Each structure stands twice: as C-alpha cells, then as structure tokens.
Simulated scan of single mutants.
Amino acid sequence: MSATAQTADNPLSEKQRRILDYLQANADEQTYFKSRLIGDELGLSAKEVGTNMTTIAEGDHNIDVEKWGYSSSTTWMVDA
C-alpha cells in the first residue's frame, strides 16, 4: 500500500489527506510540527489540525505521528 493510499476501513477525509500530504512532503526536513503552523500553511484552524491529526496518527500511512507537547499549540513529532 502506498503512503497516501486510503484503506477501505478508514478512508481519510479531504482535510486529513491535505495534512498527511503536507507532513509527508516536509518530514524529511523537519521533525516537529505545531498544529497552528500546519493550519496556517493549509488554511485550517489549529483545532481542525489537531482533531484530524489523531486519525492520521492512529492510521497506517507509512508515517509515525506522536503528540509531543502543548506549548502555545499542540506539537507533533513526525517520523517518515
């Protein structure tokens, strides 16, 4: 299965797909991502990003996402 393939049991929404694509495109250069800054890049609120990151973190997308910190915005550690 490719890194961006949807599974039949848990298809990604358009927002989740956009967030996942953003993370995959930037994970080689960056490890930590703030919800607020992802939202700024994608035209989403930090809350929208945080809500959707949980689904991405729980899925099998060839990328590891872990909630890392909460200072001024949730920080996510991403390993591709």
Rank of each mutant, 00 (worst) to 15 (best):
M1V: 08
M1T: 11
M1W: 01
S2I: 02
A3W: 06
A3D: 10
T4V: 09
T4Q: 09
A5F: 02
A5S: 10
T7K: 11
A8H: 02
N10D: 14
N10H: 12
S13V: 08
E14V: 13
E14H: 08
E14A: 12
Q16N: 06
I19C: 07
L20K: 03
D21P: 01
L23R: 01
A25V: 04
A25D: 10
N26E: 09
A27D: 06
A27T: 05
E29W: 01
E29C: 05
Y32N: 06
F33P: 00
K34E: 12
K34D: 08
K34L: 07
K34S: 14
L37Q: 13
I38R: 06
D40G: 03
D40E: 14
E41A: 15
G43D: 08
L44N: 07
L44D: 03
L44H: 05
S45V: 00
S45F: 00
A46T: 03
A46Q: 13
K47D: 12
E48I: 07
E48L: 08
V49P: 05
G50V: 06
T51Q: 15
T51C: 02
N52W: 00
N52V: 05
N52E: 11
N52P: 05
M53Y: 12
M53F: 10
T55C: 02
A57E: 15
E58Y: 12
E58A: 14
G59W: 01
D60G: 04
D60S: 11
H61Q: 12
I63T: 11
I63F: 04
V65C: 14
V65L: 08
K67M: 11
W68M: 11
Y70T: 06
Y70G: 10
S72K: 14
S72M: 09
S73Q: 03
S73W: 09
W76P: 05
W76T: 07
W76H: 09
W76S: 00
M77W: 15
V78W: 11
V78A: 14
D79I: 13
A80Q: 09
A80R: 15
A80F: 06
A80I: 07
